[in-house]
């Protein structure tokens, strides 16, 4: 939601609805730590965990940009600098 506010200037209700719609969730679920822990783990967008294979940092942001169809400045720079396309 913070990214949609900061980079698209969306107000809170619109930002919540867009995130919920794109994740296929109800709006109330996106503030629920139990639901979102599972969603974060399934989508590889980082969750606090002691387990192996946690997707963090740039990898998580690449997945967020793709899943929410948003531009993330450092992800775009990463792609440009590595020549990777995804």
């Amino acid at each position: 939601m913070a990214r949609l506010q900061l980079n698209r200037g969306l107000r809170i209700d619109a930002a919540k609805k867009q995130v919920a719609d794109q994740l296929g969730l109800a709006v109330r679920d996106i503030a629920d730590p139990i639901v979102m822990s599972e969603v974060r783990e399934d989508l590889n967008i980082f969750r606090v965990s002691e387990g192996p294979g946690t997707v963090d940092g740039m990898a998580a942001k690449i997945n967020i940009a793709r899943k929410l169809d948003i531009e993330i400045n450092c992800v775009n720079l990463f792609k440009k600098r590595t020549g990777l396309a995804f």
Binding site: L6, G57, M58
Partner: peptide, 10 residues
């Protein structure tokens, strides 16, 4: 910071 966090950074 950009490589080790996920939230938007100001």
């Amino acid at each position: 910071v950009l490589n080790s966090t996920v939230a938007p950074v100001f």
